[in-house]
Design a protein around this nucleic acid. Sequence first.
DNA 1: GTGCGCATCAACGTATACGTTATTGGACGC
DNA 2: GCGTCCAATAACGTATACGTTGATGCGCAC
Lengths: 235, 235
Amino acid sequence: MTVPDRLPESDQRPARAPRSTETVYARLKQQILDNRYPPGAQILESEVATELNASRTPVREAFVRLQQDGLLEIVPRHGVRISALSPDDMREIYEVLMSLEPTAVELLAARRPDRTELASLIEACDAMEAALQGEPDLHAWAAADESFHLNLARLCGNKRLAAMIMQVWDQAHRARMFTLSLRPLPIKSTAEHRAVVEAILAGNCERARDLYFIHRKRGGHELTAIIERHGIQRL
Amino acid sequence: MTVPDRLPESDQRPARAPRSTETVYARLKQQILDNRYPPGAQILESEVATELNASRTPVREAFVRLQQDGLLEIVPRHGVRISALSPDDMREIYEVLMSLEPTAVELLAARRPDRTELASLIEACDAMEAALQGEPDLHAWAAADESFHLNLARLCGNKRLAAMIMQVWDQAHRARMFTLSLRPLPIKSTAEHRAVVEAILAGNCERARDLYFIHRKRGGHELTAIIERHGIQRL
DNA sequence: GTGCGCATCAACGTATACGTTATTGGACGC
DNA sequence: GCGTCCAATAACGTATACGTTGATGCGCAC
């Protein structure tokens, strides 16, 4: 162990060979989110390794990261199991989001951003509205919704907060996709997003926070209602 | 026929061999929190491996987990560097805690727990008060403080929320220890903890949440004031 | 037919080997 | 003297080998 006098400056390197671990992690995560590995599925290290043309070592490393992301569980000597969300898990996730996301909105609003800085949010609102014009395109709407929330997290100026929001957001991704066609048309939700952006632009932190909290709370209620109505136990 | 979950308490059956990865992770984490590896320090996989009598494989796995905990950074081809907290990191951490911990208090209060359920919190309050009687024992106080907050996270009934609180709490551990002797005697802080417990017992969710928020906010201000006053850039 | 026990095996957990890359020190030229 | 280039080396990233463990299936006893 050495303690350098100065921290090494973060110089940008020209080109860096992409690490296998990174590829495996990204692709596995994508496949889990896309439901290609359904919840409850058991996966073997060697299967993934051969499928992704890698050895078990980077696969294991990716598994460890995905476990901390809450997307799978490593069961010793049994391989890994893709996490399934119970209704109770959904409650937890929405409680966390109801805490973190309004805070993110408040922090963002307090910085008094102009329209330029909020471009990604405004575009997402536009895209949500466009997706509901005429024949509704629910997947386009969901993509815009996701973009809105991820950009909100990014813009809040707190990397830890952003990372935490994205983490639980990813955990709930499959559930959102699943309930997408079961919920009422998200017209109100779309309007709420727009209202939050306007409140931020108006510099009204309190209002932005409250609007967002209500939005999140309603979304959570809608989701849990669907889950209960359909008696879904695992997703 | 199902096998009992728990092994017999007598040591007739040897306990399941703990995995090396787990040991390495736990010991490394402890050493980082105890400041045995100071912030900014560069560590080599092979050093840790020989020191802990393990091979590089479990060490790498522990590194990956510790990186996601935010306690170190893996710099490709350069080993790992123990994370150093900037004043900005402290801001981030306290913003997160100011969001999550009041939520945890509110959730706990909403469950209307009795004194028995809150025993660990009450004991922590007692311990904090005891540590300030006569000659103040700051380390004992800090341990009780830590116990209070971790138990609060545990009791709130939301595992994800608890894990997130503990994660950032650990990140700030060294900073708290460092500033322990620089801050005023935590008499007020101790009283605030007690007040929160009383509000929870009284079933007053709003009050419990608000009290806690104020407590956390004051703690954050104290810490940042110390950091600024001493011109600390990295800790 | 049922249940217990042993053997076989599959998959993991860990160790180690190998190739790659970035750094460092020295030599050479200016 | 100083800067540049090259070679040696250290450390990582990945692959692979090895031992361990829990599971599965078959046979035998009852």
